[in-house]
Design a protein around this nucleic acid. Sequence first.
DNA 1: TCCCACCATCTGGTCAGACCACTTGACCAC
DNA 2: GTGGTCAAGTGGTCTGACCAGATGGTGGGA
Lengths: 239, 239
Amino acid sequence: MPLQPVHRRSVPDEVFDQVLSEVVDGGIGAGEPLPSERRLAEVLGVSRPAVREALQRMAQTRLLEVRHGGATTVRDFRRYAGLDLLPRLLVRGGDLDTAVARSVLEARLVIGPGVAALAAERGGPALEATLTETLDALAATDDDVERQLQALAFWDHVVDAADSMVFRLMFNSLRAAYEPALEALAPVMAEEVGQVGAYRVLTAAIGAGDPETARAAADRVLRPATTSILSGLSALEES
Amino acid sequence: MPLQPVHRRSVPDEVFDQVLSEVVDGGIGAGEPLPSERRLAEVLGVSRPAVREALQRMAQTRLLEVRHGGATTVRDFRRYAGLDLLPRLLVRGGDLDTAVARSVLEARLVIGPGVAALAAERGGPALEATLTETLDALAATDDDVERQLQALAFWDHVVDAADSMVFRLMFNSLRAAYEPALEALAPVMAEEVGQVGAYRVLTAAIGAGDPETARAAADRVLRPATTSILSGLSALEES
DNA sequence: TCCCACCATCTGGTCAGACCACTTGACCAC
DNA sequence: GTGGTCAAGTGGTCTGACCAGATGGTGGGA
């Protein structure tokens, strides 16, 4: 394993993670009050500003409800959390949450073709060249991780071409959840990124400005791996 | 106008909004450094912890890159921001950003049918009753806002039934963007929620456990208003 | 002349303690 | 009951200090 940048964990980061675990893993159910900032600071052995910063960050993501003068209470993350909580939900208690992983694959299969159709509608002539270039880079390497990165770049261009802020933001969130685990996932996804042909068909459809063909082509890019990983996940759930 | 809860804006909230505006509206381009925390505190006339809290919250949403010892730099929100930035992007400079609004409608039209199909696959027998109940409540009122709330509840149940964490989190983020503007949007969306019949067809398809019919029915619920609002938006863009 | 160890000085990270503002609930007078 | 009062607890904010990492200039040595 090559050298990796050390990641420093600041005190508020640590507090954030601990409180988040309490909330997500049900240590403190929805609606229940958190200990006071002073109390938390005392228990965790850190200063109050550190605790405060962590709690405010959680409040920002709608995981806590902070009321001046009153108690800070936990909100139901299933009902209020945004997409940015996904990475934390994907691994729960150190293990992969198969139900969440399944939902990622399903969402991908719904959204990918939709984005491809929009890209076909709107992508200019330069788009096909850009996509082809990326695919050439993908085809040129044998490294699974590098292929993943190129596939990611491919979709990045497609999302750009779709010219949709919502899909762009969704893609950003999904990528943020995917990238940290990219090395671990590269072998699993190898099947998909190995099918360069399917990507080329998709590229042609997008380049031709044909939304429906692009939608179908995107489905053919994404579905095989989705199906096989999905069945792998259900097998995993049995045990 | 009925009495409304007063909303207090804390100092860090204020700082957060100001810095966010600088970042989103391009006052400080991507890659450029922010003034130091001390300097910002001085300029804004607040304490450093207040500034710090705001910056950390922005860093959490990947809008800033904070490095211990080095300068805090602005990241490209278009490439890193998550779905939770949507409300802020929807209104830019006080006005509705029509391109962003368009993308919301398009995304709805892609995701809604996908979620409906999943719900049809997985929803138990109790689901149809729940949905019907919600539709009855929707049909029973003449108030546009109340109808919106019931339609939201309807989709909330559908998302629940789809049993997909990713779609649930997306829905939460979209709802968080939608709800604050609900009163303003109620007249615009009145056309859609008035078509109770289409919702009932969708409910039946979901209840019958037929994914493809449900997908098509969801499309028929969402498309008419989408199309008409979309053309309204392009007319708006002309002027 | 060039290189590099060193250090001043910038940045963010953390803390302690104080005080203000708000909410809550108990208690009391009406 | 109703409303007022008050103490205690909570979050909100500030000040000032010090720690720790990054940066760039500088002077000494090769």
